[in-house]
């Protein structure tokens, strides 16, 4: 694992901090590598495509998270976190919802909220990804 974060290939997604060069970025290189490891492992284990969005939601937040999700595919899971608004959304698609019932997502969201409330942003995201991957099981 190289510790590099692969960026989504969409125009809007390329804004923001670049990979593991955190100059002025939201996360340190160490945090980015934890995030990368969690994303890659959970995606590889489950066969679902997990992705994490960290940024502001336009109101209404849920609609914005779902609009972001619509650019992914059916087997994707989007974990969207807005530290400024203190909001998080987990969005599943037609394929991923079969593996991840809303109950499992709510449980992961609860664990993430606990970490976020303690100021552990990356820890919360990593915990959430692990819980979602565990709930989805292997493919």
């Amino acid at each position: 694992m190289s510790g590099e974060i692969t960026r989504a290939p969409s125009r809007e997604l390329q804004e923001g901090p670049q990979g593991d060069a955190p100059a002025g970025g939201a996360f340190t290189a160490r945090q980015l590598s934890r995030l990368d490891e969690a994303l890659t492992l959970s995606s590889r284990e489950t066969g679902l495509t997990f992705s994490v969005y960290v940024g502001e939601f336009k109101a209404p937040a849920r609609a914005h998270a779902e609009a972001l999700f619509e650019r992914l595919d059916d087997g994707s899971v989007l974990v969207a976190v807005s530290p400024a608004q203190r909001l998080l959304h987990i969005v599943t698609g037609p394929e991923s919802a079969k593996r991840l019932p809303n109950r499992a997502c709510a449980l992961a969201a609860l664990a993430m909220r606990a970490s976020f409330a303690n100021g552990d942003l990356v820890g919360g995201i990593v915990t959430g990804l692990r819980m979602l991957a565990d709930a989805a099981g292997t493919h």
């Binding site: 694992m1 974060i5 692969t6 960026r7 989504a8 969409s10 997604l13 804004e15 923001g16 939201a26 995030l35 990368d36 994303l39 890659t40 492992l41 959970s42 995606s43 590889r44 066969g47 495509t49 992705s51 994490v52 969005y53 960290v54 940024g55 502001e56 937040a61 849920r62 998270a65 779902e66 972001l68 999700f69 619509e70 992914l72 595919d73 059916d74 087997g75 994707s76 989007l78 203190r86 909001l87 998080l88 959304h89 987990i90 969005v91 599943t92 698609g93 037609p94 394929e95 991923s96 919802a97 019932p101 809303n102 997502c105 709510a106 969201a109 609860l110 993430m112 909220r113 493919h139």
Partner: peptide, 30 residues
């Protein structure tokens, strides 16, 4: 805002069913 995705080699390629998908479920919290 930044969007982080897994390494391409970790992702199971799926036959693309079109350009977009719709949100079905999930959870939210604050």
């Amino acid at each position: 805002g930044a969007w982080y995705v897994p390494h391409p080699e970790a992702v199971v390629a799926r036959p693309s069913t079109g350009s977009t998908t719709t949100a079905v479920g999930g959870a939210s919290g604050e």
